[in-house]
Amino acid sequence: MEQREAPLLDVRDLAVEFHVGGTVQRAVQGVSLSLNRGRTLGVVGESGCGKSVTSLSIMRLVPQPPGKYAGGQILFDGQDLLTLSESEMRKLRGGRIGMIFQEPMTSLNPVYTCGHQIEESLSVHSGLSKKAARERAIEMLDLVGLPSPKSRVDDYPHQLSGGQRQRVMIALALANDPDLLIADEPTTALDVTIQAQILDLMGELRSRTGAAVMLVTHDLGVVAQTCDDVVVMYAGRVVERAPTADLFADPQHPYTVGLMAAVPRIDTAVGRLATIPGTVPPPWSKIAGCRFASRCPLASEQCRTQDPPLRDLSPGHGVACWHAPIEVAA
């Protein structure tokens, strides 16, 4: 059922540029996406597609300069985050918006214990007393499945394994019951058995807390296993958007098709992997038309000169391609 409530997160026509050495790099252009409470949105794409810049923008963590928000709105619960002051933004981060990054070792502070970092966040955002904060920190570490949380709460990040550190990151992100959790490649640095544990944990916590989750990843397997909806990005644009089941059952954009076909499958051996020839255009290149045209076998004159808008082929399933739907022989 289509929910009629206003989305918790509504990104409209976002544009982010980087000004480097006299050139303008358009990292993200015209990106729109929305996310409702209790849903998980996957943002998927290859390196340089703008998925991380999009998630950093929502937290207003794009360094300025060289970065610049060049247009659009980021509505969080109806409020445009791009108009907030830095101190208002700081209240949201770690409070109503939680964040998890790829490498917890670089986002946890190495000179403080794990417990201290969670307690600090609790006292800043929720105004808990020292004692209450410590109890809550232990409770959070227990919730994320860290073994013997009462003693581990006094461990430093380096004393934990990669999977345990990511659990601490999740505890930290969820400590203040955020409405929105942004997870940027949360399992990419982890081994596959640990990844499965962390993904399970995130799913379980999401259903318990009702938070909306934005999961940024390059891994279509992770998307298929965890997300309700997906946005596929390519070279700073959204090229396709659909409910997860629709996207996998009926991929429309030539890039999405190529990407799915290129994923090696663990269940079946196929002879040769399908590839997408060529590479992503660099962000400083000036392309008038579709950014995928140089690698697309269907590219026509229109593709090279006019940028295709994202349009709905069916309710909720949008594609930015002049040739969609691709005609197939019956």
């Binding site: 345990q164 397997g221 992770v222 298929a224 997860t244 799915m260 994923v263 499958r265």
Partner: peptide
């Protein structure tokens, strides 16, 4: 457990098996 833990790019088969516990 290694084979089971690999996330399949197919939403119809969300992993139902409990993943292997613990760390290396």
């Amino acid at each position: 457990s290694l084979i089971a833990a690999a996330p399949r790019p197919d939403p119809a088969m969300r992993n139902v098996r409990a993943p292997v516990q613990g760390d290396l």
